[in-house]
Design a protein around this nucleic acid. Structure first.
Length: 273
DNA sequence: AACTACGCCAACCGCAGCCGC
DNA sequence: AGCGGCTGCGGTTGGCGTAGT
């Protein structure tokens, strides 16, 4: 026996919503809330199924929705969160107030995915296309992609913990506010979060997985310049994890904030700096 | 001007998880 | 514990607008 449909679809309307329908739905929810989506259409006088009403409300009519294009920082955040969570659009959307999972999913599929592809980054694994063994499988296996992201993050975390006691790095960039509880900041923000002479160990505790992405990068090092002495030193990553979107995020951030954080620069490892 | 191709995005579909009984 | 109903989620579709020929 097949699954019972979510509602009796005979005589129910499908397709685009009219202004009249929107008005009915908004008025009803404003007056009564949405206690039960299944009953709502009948009570509101709509020839729609409850599911359709819920979707229309959550994706389009909700008063707290933000409309318009996503900002560059939103985009960076989405990329960063996707690298950590995979296609968990609702989880990603929860870090972007006023944005819906559907909107972010569409934005990812129409803009970000293509942008990453153009940059040679696999949008599923966040690894360079040439080094992405997951690519062929991931295309048809989103569950695998989620697992891979989790595995990758866990591996990075472990590696960084192993290395952390050996490394100390100093930085004259200004310190910023504590991270919020959602731990949602982009790894691109890392340079400004470090304190002078702060060890990677304490930084790791502070910044979670993003720190691992940032340092465990096999082909790029992070160059730090002391603006007072005009001396530079290079931290070259250990060469264990290939570049990921965090390099992309970081590079963009530095480009955007070059005047605020002039000491920071990313160079290919072994470039002589 | 007509046709085609493409991109965007709202909406739909079906599965999974949660919860109450 | 098992079942059924409801909701949420992610993948996919289809309509519309626009650019290109």
């Amino acid at each position: 026996m097949g699954r019972r449909p979510c509602c009796d679809k005979v005589g129910l309307k499908k397709g685009p919503w009219t202004a009249e329908e929107d008005k009915k739905l908004v008025n009803f929810i404003a007056n009564n809330g949405h206690c039960c989506w299944r009953l709502l259409p009948k009570l509101a006088g709509l020839l729609r199924c409850g599911k359709s009403c819920r979707l229309r409300w959550t994706n389009y009519l909700r008063p707290d929705l933000k409309r318009g294009v996503l900002s560059p920082s939103d985009e960076k955040l989405i990329i960063d969160l996707h690298a950590r969570m995979g296609n968990r659009w609702s989880k990603i959307a929860s870090h972007l107030p006023g944005r819906t999972d559907n909107e972010i999913k569409n934005y990812w599929n129409t803009y970000i995915k293509k942008k990453l592809m153009r940059m040679g980054i696999d949008p599923v694994t966040h690894l360079p296309l040439s080094e992405s063994p997951q690519l062929s499988q991931q295309d048809n296996n989103s569950a695998g992609a989620k697992d891979f992201c989790v595995d990758q993050a866990e591996t990075q975390k472990q590696i960084l913990h192993e290395k952390s006691s050996e490394i100390t790095i100093s930085n004259s960039a200004p310190q910023q506010e504590e991270p919020d509880q959602s731990n949602s900041f982009s790894s691109a923000e890392i340079p400004c979060k470090m304190e002078e002479s702060q060890s990677i160990q304490s930084w790791w505790e502070y910044s979670d997985i993003a720190a691992a992405d940032y340092f465990e990068n096999s082909e790029y090092g992070i160059t730090w310049f002391d603006p007072e002495s005009n001396m530079g030193s290079v931290f070259e990553s250990p060469g264990l994890i290939p570049p990921s979107s965090d390099f992309y995020n970081t590079h963009l951030f530095l480009q955007d904030n070059i005047n605020s954080f002039p000491p920071w620069e990313i160079q290919p490892a072994g470039s002589g700096l």
